[in-house]
Protein backbone atom coordinates (compact mmCIF):
# COMPACT_ATOMS: atom_id res chain seq x y z
CA UNK A 1 0.00 0.00 0.00
CA UNK A 2 1.20 3.44 -0.95
CA UNK A 3 0.21 5.05 2.33
CA UNK A 4 -1.37 4.42 5.73
CA UNK A 5 -4.77 5.82 4.78
CA UNK A 6 -5.08 3.07 2.15
CA UNK A 7 -4.36 0.42 4.79
CA UNK A 8 -7.08 1.99 6.90
CA UNK A 9 -9.47 1.92 3.93
CA UNK A 10 -8.69 -1.76 3.46
CA UNK A 11 -9.14 -2.67 7.12
CA UNK A 12 -12.43 -0.73 7.23
CA UNK A 13 -13.65 -2.84 4.28
CA UNK A 14 -13.13 -5.94 6.45
CA UNK A 15 -15.25 -4.33 9.18
CA UNK A 16 -17.98 -3.53 6.67
CA UNK A 17 -17.87 -7.08 5.29
CA UNK A 18 -18.27 -8.31 8.89
CA UNK A 19 -21.49 -6.31 9.16
CA UNK A 20 -20.18 -3.63 11.52
CA UNK A 21 -22.60 -0.82 12.38
CA UNK A 22 -19.88 1.16 14.11
CA UNK A 23 -16.28 1.60 13.05
CA UNK A 24 -13.88 3.56 15.21
CA UNK A 25 -10.64 4.74 13.65
CA UNK A 26 -8.05 6.28 15.92
CA UNK A 27 -4.73 7.72 14.92
CA UNK A 28 -2.40 8.87 17.66
CA UNK A 29 0.85 10.66 16.95
CA UNK A 30 3.23 10.59 19.85
CA UNK A 31 6.35 12.49 18.85
CA UNK A 32 7.85 12.43 22.33
CA UNK A 33 7.88 8.65 22.34
CA UNK A 34 8.34 8.42 18.57
CA UNK A 35 5.27 6.21 18.22
CA UNK A 36 2.52 6.42 15.62
CA UNK A 37 -0.52 4.29 16.39
CA UNK A 38 -3.49 3.30 14.26
CA UNK A 39 -6.34 1.54 15.98
CA UNK A 40 -9.45 0.28 14.20
CA UNK A 41 -12.27 -1.07 16.25
CA UNK A 42 -15.56 -2.47 14.93
CA UNK A 43 -18.71 -4.11 16.22
CA UNK A 44 -19.01 -6.57 13.35
CA UNK A 45 -19.47 -10.32 13.72
CA UNK A 46 -15.92 -10.93 14.96
CA UNK A 47 -13.82 -14.04 14.52
CA UNK A 48 -13.41 -17.39 16.20
CA UNK A 49 -10.18 -18.07 18.08
CA UNK A 50 -9.18 -20.45 15.29
CA UNK A 51 -9.68 -17.84 12.59
CA UNK A 52 -7.95 -15.19 14.65
CA UNK A 53 -4.88 -17.39 14.92
CA UNK A 54 -4.70 -17.66 11.14
CA UNK A 55 -5.62 -14.20 10.08
CA UNK A 56 -2.09 -12.79 9.97
CA UNK A 57 -1.10 -15.64 7.64
CA UNK A 58 -1.10 -14.35 4.05
CA UNK A 59 -2.52 -17.63 2.78
CA UNK A 60 -5.67 -17.39 4.80
CA UNK A 61 -9.00 -15.85 3.84
CA UNK A 62 -12.64 -16.86 4.18
CA UNK A 63 -13.48 -15.23 0.91
CA UNK A 64 -14.30 -17.56 -1.95
CA UNK A 65 -13.35 -15.14 -4.70
CA UNK A 66 -9.63 -15.45 -4.04
CA UNK A 67 -7.52 -17.95 -2.17
CA UNK A 68 -5.26 -15.70 -0.16
CA UNK A 69 -6.07 -12.98 2.31
CA UNK A 70 -3.73 -10.05 2.12
CA UNK A 71 -4.91 -6.96 3.90
CA UNK A 72 -4.09 -7.85 7.49
CA UNK A 73 -0.70 -9.51 6.77
CA UNK A 74 0.32 -6.46 4.71
CA UNK A 75 -0.44 -4.01 7.50
CA UNK A 76 1.34 -6.24 10.04
CA UNK A 77 4.40 -6.43 7.85
CA UNK A 78 4.54 -2.68 7.29
CA UNK A 79 4.20 -1.92 11.01
CA UNK A 80 6.83 -4.47 11.99
CA UNK A 81 9.23 -3.27 9.33
CA UNK A 82 9.50 0.04 11.18
CA UNK A 83 10.25 -1.76 14.44
CA UNK A 84 6.64 -1.37 15.54
CA UNK A 85 4.10 -4.04 16.30
CA UNK A 86 0.74 -5.39 15.28
CA UNK A 87 -2.02 -6.61 17.57
CA UNK A 88 -5.42 -8.03 16.75
CA UNK A 89 -8.15 -9.22 19.05
CA UNK A 90 -11.63 -10.35 18.22
CA UNK A 91 -14.65 -11.91 19.86
CA UNK A 92 -17.36 -13.65 17.94
CA UNK A 93 -20.55 -11.64 18.10
CA UNK A 94 -18.73 -8.67 19.64
CA UNK A 95 -16.28 -7.23 17.17
CA UNK A 96 -12.66 -6.82 16.28
CA UNK A 97 -9.85 -4.51 17.35
CA UNK A 98 -6.75 -4.01 15.24
CA UNK A 99 -3.83 -1.96 16.51
CA UNK A 100 -0.80 -1.20 14.39
CA UNK A 101 2.08 0.66 16.00
CA UNK A 102 4.80 2.29 13.92
CA UNK A 103 8.10 3.84 14.89
CA UNK A 104 7.17 7.35 13.85
CA UNK A 105 10.40 8.67 12.37
CA UNK A 106 11.44 5.38 10.79
CA UNK A 107 12.36 5.61 7.13
CA UNK A 108 9.93 2.82 6.24
CA UNK A 109 6.89 4.34 7.93
CA UNK A 110 4.54 5.18 5.10
CA UNK A 111 3.03 8.69 4.99
CA UNK A 112 -0.58 9.06 6.11
CA UNK A 113 -1.99 10.03 2.70
CA UNK A 114 -5.53 11.22 2.05
CA UNK A 115 -7.18 10.09 5.29
CA UNK A 116 -9.97 12.66 4.88
CA UNK A 117 -10.87 11.16 1.49
CA UNK A 118 -10.77 7.62 2.86
CA UNK A 119 -13.07 8.41 5.78
CA UNK A 120 -15.50 10.49 3.75
CA UNK A 121 -15.74 8.14 0.75
CA UNK A 122 -16.33 5.20 3.08
CA UNK A 123 -18.97 7.13 5.01
CA UNK A 124 -20.66 8.22 1.78
CA UNK A 125 -20.88 4.63 0.55
CA UNK A 126 -22.16 3.31 3.88
CA UNK A 127 -24.58 5.87 5.32
CA UNK A 128 -26.08 3.33 7.73
CA UNK A 129 -22.75 2.69 9.42
CA UNK A 130 -21.50 5.09 12.05
CA UNK A 131 -17.88 5.97 11.43
CA UNK A 132 -15.91 7.77 14.05
CA UNK A 133 -12.43 9.08 13.39
CA UNK A 134 -10.29 10.50 16.15
CA UNK A 135 -6.87 11.97 15.43
CA UNK A 136 -4.63 13.17 18.22
CA UNK A 137 -1.31 14.94 18.26
CA UNK A 138 0.54 16.78 21.01
CA UNK A 139 -1.32 19.95 19.94
CA UNK A 140 -4.77 18.48 20.51
CA UNK A 141 -7.28 16.11 19.07
CA UNK A 142 -10.04 16.14 16.47
CA UNK A 143 -13.10 13.90 16.26
CA UNK A 144 -15.14 13.38 13.12
CA UNK A 145 -18.32 11.44 13.78
CA UNK A 146 -20.77 10.57 11.02
CA UNK A 147 -23.63 10.50 13.51
CA UNK A 148 -23.19 14.30 13.85
CA UNK A 149 -22.94 14.69 10.09
CA UNK A 150 -26.09 12.66 9.48
CA UNK A 151 -27.83 14.69 12.17
CA UNK A 152 -27.12 17.86 10.20
CA UNK A 153 -27.79 16.40 6.76
CA UNK A 154 -31.13 14.74 7.48
CA UNK A 155 -32.43 13.50 4.14
CA UNK A 156 -29.78 15.22 2.05
CA UNK A 157 -27.59 12.45 0.66
CA UNK A 158 -24.06 12.32 2.02
CA UNK A 159 -22.84 10.83 -1.27
CA UNK A 160 -23.43 14.14 -3.05
CA UNK A 161 -20.17 15.37 -4.63
CA UNK A 162 -20.38 18.83 -3.08
CA UNK A 163 -20.96 17.41 0.38
CA UNK A 164 -18.14 14.91 -0.03
CA UNK A 165 -15.79 17.68 -1.03
CA UNK A 166 -16.89 19.90 1.86
CA UNK A 167 -16.45 17.13 4.43
CA UNK A 168 -12.95 16.40 3.18
CA UNK A 169 -12.03 20.07 3.52
CA UNK A 170 -13.54 20.20 6.99
CA UNK A 171 -11.46 17.22 8.14
CA UNK A 172 -8.29 18.58 6.53
CA UNK A 173 -8.78 22.02 8.14
CA UNK A 174 -9.15 20.42 11.53
CA UNK A 175 -6.15 18.11 11.07
CA UNK A 176 -4.01 21.09 10.10
CA UNK A 177 -5.28 22.89 13.15
CA UNK A 178 -3.79 20.19 15.39
CA UNK A 179 -0.57 20.21 13.35
CA UNK A 180 -0.90 16.65 12.18
CA UNK A 181 2.02 14.97 10.48
CA UNK A 182 1.41 14.62 6.76
CA UNK A 183 4.66 12.88 5.88
Amino acid sequence: MKDLSLHILDIMQNSLAAGAKLIDVEIAENKTENIYTICINDNGKGMSAHMLSKVTDPFFTTRTTRKVGLGIPLLKENAERTGGKFEISSLQGEGTVIKATFVMNHFDRQPLGDIAGVIVLTAASNPAVRIKYVHSTCSGSYTFDTSEIMGVLGNTPVNNAEIISFLKEMINDNLENINYTTG
Binding site: V152, L153, T156, E162, I163, M170, D173, N174, N177
Partner: peptide, 24 residues
Protein backbone atom coordinates in the same frame (compact mmCIF):
# COMPACT_ATOMS: atom_id res chain seq x y z
CA UNK B 1 -8.43 31.07 7.67
CA UNK B 2 -11.51 29.85 9.39
CA UNK B 3 -11.75 26.13 10.05
CA UNK B 4 -14.81 24.63 8.41
CA UNK B 5 -17.40 23.37 10.85
CA UNK B 6 -20.80 21.71 11.09
CA UNK B 7 -22.35 25.16 10.77
CA UNK B 8 -20.83 25.52 7.33
CA UNK B 9 -22.21 22.08 6.52
CA UNK B 10 -25.72 23.45 7.20
CA UNK B 11 -25.14 26.13 4.58
CA UNK B 12 -23.81 23.59 2.06
CA UNK B 13 -26.80 21.36 2.72
CA UNK B 14 -29.20 24.20 1.90
CA UNK B 15 -27.37 25.03 -1.34
CA UNK B 16 -27.19 21.37 -2.38
CA UNK B 17 -30.90 20.93 -1.75
CA UNK B 18 -31.76 24.00 -3.77
CA UNK B 19 -29.73 22.65 -6.69
CA UNK B 20 -30.86 19.05 -6.55
CA UNK B 21 -33.09 18.31 -9.47
CA UNK B 22 -36.25 16.29 -9.24
CA UNK B 23 -34.62 13.22 -10.65
CA UNK B 24 -32.12 13.03 -7.82
Amino acid sequence: TKIKSLNDLRAIKASVEAKMNLRE
